[in-house]
Write a protein that binds this DNA or RNA. Structure first.
Lengths: 215, 215, 215, 215
DNA sequence: CTGTAATCGAGACGGTACGTCGAGTCTTTGA
DNA sequence: TCAAAGACTCGACGTACCGTCTCGATTACAG
């Protein structure tokens, strides 16, 4: 799913030496380490290969460039880190989401990598898709989940029925997601300020007023 | 202020041949053109120099790398394009700001460049400062102005007096700025969707509810 | 022996793609052609690489600069062109050697290159060694051979026996070599006159009188 | 005579600020110093100008390139150093000439510069002329003088009368000059050995036998 | 004493080449 | 067939000098 040749099962003939699974792990690990040390701009595939104890050939056989590799490398972090325990109220859940986004963005490997691949993606449709599935969709899932819980609690009105209702709901989720993720990203990376508990609370207050007042 | 040697006033002696102002103009223009055609990733300083009819040396004498040059090149757009005519109401002003940010971000030169330099800036304090003064401050000015107008109209409560009041106001501006700019940037560049009139209206509705309910 | 990494035998591991022998040939050939067309001063390694159909990197991987490359390029000529057929008498052999040196020095590639690398060598011990083995030794071999033949014919007295004898012989060879090669080089390159048959004869007369009178 | 614009007398109008004679001196001095430190290859005109406390412009106004400047700079040495006191015999005079040539060539500035400009001169007629008048003719004068003295002493036969005689004499001088200068240059720069008293004596012996036996 | 005309320093200018580096590809030997 | 090693082509990098140019500031001699 994340490889240039979807390594899922042995697509490529069944003879010959099989690909080392260990190599995959080592490469992604090395990529993250290199990202932390050098940042996106100075990261080189030759260096990653050397750190992973792997030949450059091996690396290119599995990914087709710096961007693809880095997306996969940071995608792994999104898998591990994003979950949303029920904190009992909409406000608590929103603050939780904000904190999780912020925690992820304050890790040095994501901080430097995320905007870089987003930038690359402005000219690369395939990369855009990869980012969507590896990053955006996983984050958006949290928004969806939090919204459903709030509706179940009665903190937010339920979705309208029918096709239009579903579309409006999706629309609403997109808006909320862009506002939350955007504000956190912007504060962290552009304004260059930390997302602390105080800011999270103020932002949540602003947001909840908006969400609960007008439908 | 925007050069590697802040050319503001004649810092570098008064003797010797003076730097060509025409060259500056041509270089920034060429940089924007190259950004549109090639995008950040493929943009090379050699190519920019060639387009500007200027030697590479001249370019390196004034800026110290791709990032710094590109920041200055897009900063010029922020100068030209950002203004806030009084549209008569807070809602209209907010929608106006959103549309302006979005229009700027949908230009191909900013779309490809902005996140790239933000990414570079995560490892470069000087670059961060340059972005702040060339981009962030110019944008934030609009937020401040819009807020003051709304206070004058009575749409928003006035700032509290004294030192604490000023600090709280600045704090508030920062929050609003990150929310607006962040949401627009995220929708445009990460989610990859257009900011149309409908979205601008919905987002404004969300935001105004937040701004006007709880102080 | 002539490379920066003495490629003689597989010094650099046995794995990996081996260096292309064809590239070597093409580079030296291109170097000579460029020397003829442009002369030492205008010769650039980038141009040589282009002529040879080879990347600059390849060239720098094998030689460490213009001088080293040029020495190897002209050394090949010294290999091909210097031989000493037995012409039956010392006089004839000496004239033969002189003509061969002169013919080599009048080729445009050697004419422009030789003094240039000698000049560089005044500040570069490694280059000096390279010149010695690639040029000087090959020329000196001819002097040694001619001298032995003359001794065999009885035109010159035999070497004295023992350690001292061998040292004196080597000494003598060095002197003769410097006189012959020096006179030819100086006439050709410094005085800028041709070495024609007449000059060769007169010089030989002068030399033979010196060689045969006082031992 | 040695300048690009033969500064001999005021060719260039008589008004305007006159050229600084001090600058000339300082530049030539700086050139020699730079030659000693850096050698021909690393010597740059910018550096010379800086050492001389002079603008690059000044330098280019008087000479038209590295080669011309260096020829003039070393030519001054030839003026000071070459003279031939009468040592009473042909042998002594020849050894004297050899030692003088050798002493000149062992100075680091001439060692590195001489062959370099000779190499440049292979492609530059004007430079060749400049070398001839600044170097070759001055050295050859010594050979001529020594030969005349020897003829006066009766150690060498007098020149034949008439046009042919003069031509033959000039011819002879040229041959001797190339042999002496060539041997010394070659030993010093190519073979890389010192010219000590022993070598000078042996070479003289060889040469005198040749000069005195056959006419 | 006042132009006029060439010099001087400084340093920016358009160029050309440098030698290095990274991206990807290709070609070996060995598992 | 894949893996490691490393040579390959290509293209950009940022720097160094080149030789020219434009400045403002000095000199000298001519009127």
């Amino acid at each position: 799913m994340s490889r240039s040749e979807p390594s899922s099962s042995a697509q490529h003939g069944r003879t010959g030496r099989p690909r080392s699974a260990e190599a995959d792990r080592a490469i992604l690990e090395a990529t993250r380490a290199a990202l932390v040390e050098l940042g996106w701009g100075k990261l080189t595939l030759g260096d990653v290969a050397a750190r992973a104890g792997v030949a450059k050939t091996t690396l290119y056989r599995r990914w087709n460039g710096k961007s693809a590799l880095v997306v996969d490398a940071v995608a792994a972090l999104f898998d591990e880190r994003l979950e949303l325990p029920d904190r009992g109220s909409l406000r608590a859940d929103v603050e939780g989401v904000i904190q999780q986004f912020a925690a992820l963005l304050e890790r040095p490997e994501t901080k430097t990598a995320l905007m870089a691949v987003v930038s690359e993606a402005t000219r690369d449709e395939a990369l855009r898709g990869r980012i969507r599935s590896a990053v955006v969709d996983r984050q958006k899932r949290l928004v969806i989940m939090g919204r459903e819980r709030a509706q179940a609690r009665g903190e937010l009105p339920p979705d309208a029925d029918g096709e239009d209702g579903r579309a409006a709901a999706a629309h609403h989720v997109d808006l909320i997601y862009d506002v939350i993720a955007g504000a956190v990203v912007h504060r962290t990376l552009v304004s260059g300020e930390r997302v602390d508990a105080g800011w999270a609370r103020e932002f949540t207050t602003l947001l909840l007023a908006g969400l609960t007042s007008a439908p």
